[in-house]
Amino acid sequence: MNCLEAGKEIPNYCYGEVSSELEELVESHLADCPACRTELARHRKFLELLDEREPMLDSSMLVQCRSQLNTAIRQQASVEASHSAGWRGWHRVLETLRDFSRVQIPFKVPVGAMALVALGFVGARYTPEKFGGVRAATMEPLFSSVRSVEPNAGGQVQIAVDETRRHIVSGSIQDPQIQELLVSGVTDGSNAGVRLKSIQFLHDQVLPAGVGSADVDQVRAALLGALRNDPSAAVRLKALDGLKQFASDATVRTALAGVLQKDEDSTVRMQAIEMLATHHDDSLVGVLQNVVQKEDSPLVRAQITQLLAQLKASVGTY
């Protein structure tokens, strides 16, 4: 080994990243070469200097990250739960079709395909050419993304591909399955637009047209959930709209009182007060007197004061 070769190996030698044979060669050269020993000493000093770098990590960052991750995972779990709830209705449709198939169609015909045909979901699908698929006329795009690429034991490659297929479902607003999907849409954590439109349909078409009493409970519960938990003020406002016809209901009024105390959006709070004002309710006085003392918005304060006056109560608790 000459000095040039040894110089090239010194960085790897210092990191212990040379084979034992190479290590022996480097050490043997160093033993006979004062210039390379000097270079080794300089390189070691350089490595020590690198460790003078200021660390940037502090423990509060880690605590903060864990807390944010916790929240994100909760949201993720909630999205997954709402998706699985949304598909429960369709699972029932498929189960029904499975029973139907036993009578009308030979046993081995795939149930999923029958469901697609029976429901009018055209089965053509689009797979990007990069995955070896064939372009075809489509009503149901298939969105694919590669999640991981790994070698496998057989020397081949194993590619994990996520696929999301979109089904277009259309039907009468009176269809219980459609109603169930709309209720699921209210709790779709991933898309505020979907939540908003689902509530709008429930409010504008489903509730006025009348549904069975059990379904009304389901719709009301979904709207109350949106009112209490939805991060979007627009969705909460729309949920309040949907709840107007339940304004006399005790559960709804409790939720409205909760909005007054906790909702951070003043428009939502004002809307809640309007709904509370539609029914005379003396039991609200204590809550209103308490809230008016803490309310930041002058408009909301004025509205509460007006409502207290309607209830013939004073602003203060005295």
């Binding site: 423990s59 880690l62 605590v63 903060q64 864990r66 991750l69 916790n70 995972i73």
Partner: peptide, 9 residues
Amino acid sequence: MYHAAETVN
């Protein structure tokens, strides 16, 4: 599920 830690373990 996660809970924000008081201290970092």
